[in-house]
Amino acid sequence: MSCGRPHAVPCSEVLEQVYVYLDGELGAEEIARIRQHLDECAPCLEEYGLDQLVKSLVARCCGHDHAPDALRQKILARIREIRVELSRPE
């Protein structure tokens, strides 16, 4: 996904880090870079909003259960694979 405009941080990088961003696991500099991109890029902001909604729904439905680290890594890897598949031209 890309809006077609150049950004300091490419859309692909922002989308790859969106869950880490949502989890508050980035440093201040990375947060600022991603926030700036989201302020400039409507498609990425829309994807961020969808990811934020999914995270909120999962948190509400699953309470405070934490996924094992290995499961979390498998899920993130699969998300990256799907994004690559979706970004390939048909």
Rank of each mutant, 00 (worst) to 15 (best):
D65M: 14
G63T: 06
C11G: 06
A70N: 08
C61P: 01
I75F: 11
E47A: 15
C3R: 11
A70P: 11
L26G: 06
C61D: 08
H64A: 14
H66A: 15
V58D: 02
S2I: 01
L15T: 12
E13H: 06
I82C: 03
H7E: 08
P68N: 14
V84C: 04
G49Q: 03
D65V: 14
L57K: 15
L76Y: 02
R78S: 06
C62R: 13
R72W: 05
A28W: 08
H37F: 04
G49N: 08
E46F: 10
I34T: 00
D23I: 07
L76I: 05
E47N: 03
Q36R: 15
P10E: 14
D39G: 13
P43N: 11
G63Y: 08
D65C: 13
C61Q: 09
V18Y: 09
C62T: 12
L15P: 00
L50Y: 06
R80H: 12
R33M: 07
G49M: 09
Y48E: 09
V9R: 12
L26S: 04
L38S: 03
L22F: 11
I75Y: 09
Q17G: 05
E13P: 00
L26N: 06
Q36V: 13
S12W: 05
R35E: 14
G24I: 04
P43Y: 12
K55H: 11
A8S: 12
R83C: 05
E13D: 11
K74C: 01
L76S: 05
C41S: 06
Y21S: 03
E13I: 02
C3Q: 09
D51W: 15
E47L: 05
H37Q: 02
S12P: 02
L57C: 06
R5D: 05
Q17M: 08
R78M: 10
D65F: 13
I75G: 08
G24Q: 07
V20T: 15
